[in-house]
């Protein structure tokens, strides 16, 4: 474990907590893409299948359980409890345009052609693009609530910090996973446009509004 990865995990945790707080305090899922949350749930389910077979550390197990349960809870809140506030008309990104290419790529490009490894690879590829429905929805509505933009900033930062973690592990632990690194770079790059808006607007106290 290194500081980059620890802070990255804490940013990821903060993002998920921020999202739950936003939903619970505002009693609304307005502006949230249920499709992105379904994709994140799928990322965790396919990545953490080894929850009971692979024991790494208490920290690893606890975080996996929290990520799994919180992502499933978020999907539940969006599609059942606060369904009335879900803005389905703007959450129209076609998930199959992400699921099918990620599944095909995971079958073709992986470290080992075994069910667990292909599912892990699928979860890595899917996580890289899972935010697209949410970013697409914001581009359609033209704005995002401030707390939603904090959520996105924390979520985007987590994988950016993981890139630094991979650099560190490459140089100091001789540990390198090209699939995770390439997907992680793609994932972080997808947030760049949002990072620019967040830093130039939200941090200046303005609401996140996309140029019309």
């Amino acid at each position: 474990m290194n500081a980059f990865r620890l802070v990255g995990d804490l940013c990821h945790l903060a993002a998920i907590v921020l999202l739950l707080l936003k939903i619970w305090k505002s009693r609304s899922v307005a502006g949230l893409s249920g499709k992105s949350q379904i994709l994140f749930g799928l990322v965790f389910v396919t990545r953490y299948l080894d929850l009971v077979t692979n024991f790494v550390s208490p920290y690893n197990t606890i975080m996996k359980v929290f990520f799994l349960s919180s992502s499933i809870a978020t999907v539940y809140l969006i599609y059942t409890k606060f369904k009335a506030t879900y803005d389905g008309n703007h959450d129209t990104f076609r998930m199959e345009f992400l699921l099918i290419p990620c599944a095909l790529l995971a079958i073709v490009v992986n470290h080992e052609f075994s069910p667990m490894e292909i599912l892990w690879t699928f979860s890595i590829y899917l996580e890289a693009v899972a935010i697209l429905p949410q970013l697409f929805m914001i581009s359609k509505t033209g704005e995002a609530e401030t707390i939603t933009s904090h959520y996105l900033f924390a979520l985007g930062s987590y994988r950016g910090l993981y890139i630094m973690n991979w650099l560190y592990r490459y140089y100091y632990e001789n540990n390198f996973d090209v699939i995770a690194v390439v997907a992680g770079i793609v994932q972080t790059v997808l947030y760049c446009d949002f990072f620019y808006l967040y830093i130039t607007k939200v941090l200046q106290g303005k609401k996140l509004q996309l140029p019309a």
Binding site: H12, N54, M63, E117
Partner: peptide, 10 residues
């Protein structure tokens, strides 16, 4: 700990 795949990241 028991970790055959060597995957130790979240």
């Amino acid at each position: 700990g028991f970790n055959p795949s060597g995957k130790d990241e979240l």
